[in-house]
Write a protein that binds this DNA or RNA. Sequence first.
DNA 1: CTGTATCCTAAAGGATACTG
DNA 2: CAGTATCCTTTAGGATACAG
Lengths: 121, 121
Amino acid sequence: MDRTGDEYSVGNGGHDMGPLTAAAAIVGKKWHPRIVVELLRDGPLGFNDLKESVDGISDKVLSESLDDLQERDIVHRTVIDDKPVRVEYSLTEWGEELEQVVTAMDEWGTRYLDRTDESAE
Amino acid sequence: MDRTGDEYSVGNGGHDMGPLTAAAAIVGKKWHPRIVVELLRDGPLGFNDLKESVDGISDKVLSESLDDLQERDIVHRTVIDDKPVRVEYSLTEWGEELEQVVTAMDEWGTRYLDRTDESAE
DNA sequence: CTGTATCCTAAAGGATACTG
DNA sequence: CAGTATCCTTTAGGATACAG
């Protein structure tokens, strides 16, 4: 099937689960892109290190976010059996490939926030 | 304090409104990327044409989405004073520049949904 | 044709306390 | 160190009806 002109593959006819929606479900959560970015930058991180890096997220929300990201095959969880137990979170291949998306978002966001700088309000 | 690897400008210290969050606030809404994509593809569109294109969205949600996108300077609304009144929605420059983001999202999403292909349908 | 007005449900996120 | 358990508030989104 040729997709001429359907570059975005959203011309679906009846259901609403296209690529864009799939990506939005991940990258649109408030903390998800932040988590992905930190894992891209600082490699595997433990729970608390990640929490420090993300800065502002609560235990509960980080925990839930990580669960969600694991279910979606974005993040991998490795238990390292020391005493006390350590855990390492890292990106799966799909997580790694999100770099292009979060980079595009970050670049756009930087320009956008800068546009006349209303932050001075 | 060295910020090695602060490429993503998210190492903020206290508030949580970085570029990523700004982008996520737009592109993470269920219908926003869809709307942007349709406007990128089919140029200015009227309310009902847009509704047809997006396919599945309700009046209320489309209306609210467009309000939000206008406030965020992504979409421009032009009233064309015919009888009956027509309205054209188009992208602002910031809306246009979102193309890189939605394209990255769509490409990633396509690969992702394809990874074992659960949507053979 | 271009929306508003209600009403309702589900999901996201935050605060705080507690546990293996 | 790595989470759970509650409880609560806000927001997104859907259904349906009505209006300029």
